[in-house]
Write a protein that binds this DNA or RNA. Structure first.
Lengths: 156, 156
DNA sequence: GTCGCTGCAAAACGTTTGCATTTAG
DNA sequence: CTAAATGCAAACGTTTTGCAGCGAC
């Protein structure tokens, strides 16, 4: 959960303002706060993660508002919703440079993002071969990271 | 949801009997029925799907039994649990020939299973390159199938 | 002033569990 | 006889929703 650089955060707020105007949505203090918290920290956050950060600045904000705001960000294309092996949704800021997939440590939950053009190409080919026009895909690799392996976590 | 051929069904029942004996589990009429229904029809079934089929032969069987039985099949290695884009779990009979991934039509939910050695190889390479020892992966391609495309379903 | 947004609490959803009862071994 | 499995209903964790009041525009 690193921090995103301030220029990028500002640009995300701008992009959001545009999108919200387009869609006729109102800019409330709660939305501004939730989005700011979310934009500032990189990584894959659950609703609870975001709510906890939000509560440090305003403890009165409710669950539902965070859910609704993150959903709005997804609809506006500024966030992606992910479902890894745990049962809850995680959100990440949409990467302007485009799509990526995930390599997840089953032991410590560290997440590495990857992009592999060759795999993407093979996916396209495979879909086409079966008559499918590819819309999106989910590619998650679960493994044990080097650190965990060194600490003697075994794959059982 | 096709049907599986009778010899294969019989062989699944045998394999299950072995596994259950190994684990000291009891063969009840409910378990036999749930497993028989599940083994007979190929495809990716939700708990409700299975329960509906089961109820045609015995309406007294409860939700919990089906959940517990499918879970037992997963633990015994005879079934796999999948989570596609809808929120519920789907189960399929474990394919003796080994692992496969899925190509899913976002319009009609048709599912094609695929296996691509080259993609598998690239995944391994990618994980290794990041210091991960691969344990498992999830690879789902969502697209529009030929039939739906011909019927004018567009990708929007 | 209107209509969208908030916060709360309640409902919904798929899944799991506690428990009294039944049943396999 | 005993321990495991069943069926019910209630609990669970996450997400969504209804609604009265509040606040952006």
């Amino acid at each position: 959960m690193g921090k995103r650089n301030p220029e990028k955060v500002a640009s995300l707020h701008e992009k959001l303002a545009d999108k919200m105007e387009e869609r006729g949505l109102r800019s409330t203090s709660q939305r501004r706060l939730v989005c700011d918290v979310f934009f500032r920290s990189s990584g894959h956050h659950s609703v609870d993660d975001v709510l906890a950060l939000v509560h440090r600045r305003d403890p009165k904000i409710g669950y539902a508002t965070v859910y609704r705001t993150l959903k709005m960000l997804v609809e506006s294309g500024l966030a992606h919703e992910r479902h890894f092996s745990d049962s809850l949704a995680r959100f990440e800021v949409t990467d302007a440079e485009g799509h990526h997939d995930h390599l997840i440590c089953v032991s410590c939950n560290a997440i590495i993002e990857f992009e592999d053009d060759e795999i993407e190409r093979l996916q396209e080919r495979l879909a086409k071969r079966h008559g499918y026009q590819l819309v999106r895909h989910k590619h998650e690799l679960y493994g044990i990271c080097l650190t965990c392996r060194r600490q003697g976590v075994d794959s059982a």
